[in-house]
Design a protein around this nucleic acid. Sequence first.
DNA 1: CGATTCCTTGAAGGTTGTCAACGTTGGTGG
DNA 2: CCACCAACGTTGACAACCTTCAAGGAATCG
Lengths: 242, 242
Amino acid sequence: MDIPVGLRNELALGQRKITNFFGSSAPLTLQVGEIVGAVAGCCRGTYRLRTGWACKFQNLPNGRRAIVDIYVPGDVIGIDALLRNRPLTDVLTLSLATLESIPGRDGLIELMADRSISLYFTWLLSEYQRRAHRLLAAISSLDARGRIAMMVLDFHARLRRRKLITGSTYSLPLTQVQIGDYLGLTMVHVNRVLRSLRDERILSLERHCITILDLDQLRSLAQRELKPSSNTSRVDHTLAAD
Amino acid sequence: MDIPVGLRNELALGQRKITNFFGSSAPLTLQVGEIVGAVAGCCRGTYRLRTGWACKFQNLPNGRRAIVDIYVPGDVIGIDALLRNRPLTDVLTLSLATLESIPGRDGLIELMADRSISLYFTWLLSEYQRRAHRLLAAISSLDARGRIAMMVLDFHARLRRRKLITGSTYSLPLTQVQIGDYLGLTMVHVNRVLRSLRDERILSLERHCITILDLDQLRSLAQRELKPSSNTSRVDHTLAAD
DNA sequence: CGATTCCTTGAAGGTTGTCAACGTTGGTGG
DNA sequence: CCACCAACGTTGACAACCTTCAAGGAATCG
């Protein structure tokens, strides 16, 4: 909650520096469904999504695919792969996307000597971890309706914080198969739940366009068994409002 | 996979430094079921488990509790809370435990100025994230038998890497309720699956003691739908063999 | 010994997955 | 412009898996 002012300033400083680094690079354009690591050449695999969506996945031996995280514009991709030399073979674009990268041979590694930058990255990583833990809690305790509600609300909140939307409508470039892979459901069941939510005038998803019709009911679905997360503090906002 | 030697050495250096810091502190003893943040006073909430197990949880409004990560001896706790001032109210001991902490007022924050240390923490955080993603993939794609198999194998591997066990038996201080909270199942169903695995001579869990009876069959259960994780590389081993 | 927590088991019902078929959309090339 | 193709979406019937409810047994600790 109350991070000391000095630390907070240092975090913000690190963020500004990184923003500048990313901003000064020539953005890279990727088509739908491209593996980031296969396209973007080098740079130790740390990028920032300027536009478009992407996801991190794991292929499973039975041919299924689990999506473990989803990135929206403004998200940094591949900090966790920073210390591995390999390209990002597990990150996939979900839409047309443009990526910014860190210029320089070793990319981020050499920047880590700067305390404000390494603090910022630690903060980013811990945010990502909290996201993973929230998703985990949702999947292990909510039914299909609740999971979809929480996903829709999560994207809504993230896009609002980034000031990419203002209303209750946004574009969701996931197919129903991908939604299933993300929430641990089959495509068939995702489809059924979406239909029932539309019939009940709670939520509509048509042609990759989400419209929240009844916010309160959606919240109660998502929080029926998930905590209100009271300590998503101001710091998250100020820093994440990127 | 192949991290440059220089970077690898720097990571190992950071690890040694941190190990020394932790080693030089007077360890703290906690009983079963204590909230770490409520007991351990200060120190910005970064600790290392010297003995015993702990977990990170989220309380859900319906009274249920989701366990999102489990820590075994040697694990560092609270790096993700490093940048939040609050005590660790979401970490709970699962057994009698002793904790080491970082001496000094601001704990880790001031150590982050050291590049090798901040690299090591970034590495640690990314390892934890991979763990969360593995759990996520398992829960969203495996049935109850598979999830339990994967949990048992995961603990087995982690304890072996730390050289805390050598055989195929270890102590698992979780109750069946907690196993359920961790894997997204009810206690009743955990119990039934454990019984069937015992009947089939695959796995035995009695009085908090796990014995793996048929490793191959357990693996095939866990990997029926989960990837063989081929890129858990040597670096993990050398660094994690702590 | 009592009390609490943990484990065990059965029966019934709900949620989700599987299988299969068909409808729709969007892009490509004749 | 139309025919075609491939990917995506839609729907029904049925089965498997898991939860809920309920009750009783075992272990542990004061």
